[in-house]
């Protein structure tokens, strides 16, 4: 109770401070600008029929825009452009399978996690069974991801070849230019589900890190962050978060994955 009271006081003081912050800007413009992936099903990808960007991240973005009562405007991004887009003020939020790290938290603020995953690998069947084999392999990663950094730090003998986006790395794998590619597990599952000759590939059952995915928010935008966090918690409480998850990873989808993480499990 006391914490809630303090929170109320704090938010009152913050809103009382007369300067317009990003939340006011968004409401005044009537538009929430969100960076989302355009080539990473099921998080963010261009729907072949509607030509619009859709996906799990996009569903969350829509809810946030509705909550703010404004129009949603999506900007396509690749992994490397996420932070520059946010720090240069080109977008208000990033919802693009964005892993929360301490380093990144110095540049921007994160919401509470709304998704969790671990860094995994995709390789041709039978080529990769344990992490020990990673040293000495040529491994495709995405520029500007934590996957790239973790791999370089923990497996210094692996040759990391970084591409603009995961499907490019996959093409390099398919052509034999790299022997494995690395990404968050759910993203690889989503990718593999869309590969025509998926029977030739596998995702070996080991992870080399645990990642929590959050919404990227411009540094110091406290009120905006509060709205985002509140909305995420409401989504979990109302069961809508589970519904969004099921729409993309549920048993009837191309990439069924059990939902082990709930919003609010980790602050």
């Amino acid at each position: 109770m006391r914490r809630l009271f303090l929170l109320l006081i704090a938010s009152f003081l913050a809103s009382g401070a007369a300067h317009a912050d990003r939340l006011d800007d968004i409401k005044q413009a009537g538009v929430l600008r969100v960076a989302a992936f355009d080539s990473n099903p099921p998080f963010g990808f261009v729907d072949p029929d509607s030509k619009q960007i859709v996906g799990l991240d996009v569903d969350y973005a829509k809810v946030l825009a509705d909550k703010l009562g404004v129009k949603l405007e999506l900007r396509p991004t690749n992994p490397a452009n996420r932070i520059p887009l946010l720090t240069s003020g080109k977008v208000d939020l990033v919802l693009a399978n964005f892993t929360i790290t301490e380093e990144r938290a110095k540049q921007l603020d994160f919401s509470i996690p709304y998704f969790s995953s671990g860094q995994q690998f995709l390789a041709k069947k039978g080529t990769l069974t344990s992490p020990d084999q990673l040293n000495g392999l040529r491994i495709g990663a995405d520029k500007g991801t934590t996957n790239e950094i973790v791999l370089r730090r923990d497996f210094p003998k692996a040759v990391v070849v970084a591409f603009d986006d995961t499907p490019f790395a996959f093409t390099a794998l398919r052509n034999g230019n790299v022997q494995a590619i690395t990404q968050d597990g759910p993203k690889l599952v989503g990718l593999l589900a869309n590969v025509p000759d998926r029977e030739n590939y596998e995702i070996p059952p080991f992870t080399i890190s645990d990642d929590y995915i959050g919404v990227g928010i411009p540094k110091g935008e406290k009120r905006l962050a509060d709205v985002v966090n509140e909305t995420l918690l409401e989504l979990e409480a109302s069961g809508k978060a589970a519904a969004i998850y099921d729409a993309w990873f549920g048993p009837n989808t191309k990439q069924p994955l059990p939902r082990l993480f709930k919003i609010g499990d980790k602050k």
């Binding site: 490397a80 720090t87 380093e103 110095k106 500007g144 790239e148 950094i149 970084a162």
Partner: peptide
């Protein structure tokens, strides 16, 4: 780009 990824010193 790699240095930027690790250091954010854009």
């Amino acid at each position: 780009r790699q240095v930027e990824t690790e250091t954010f010193l854009t």
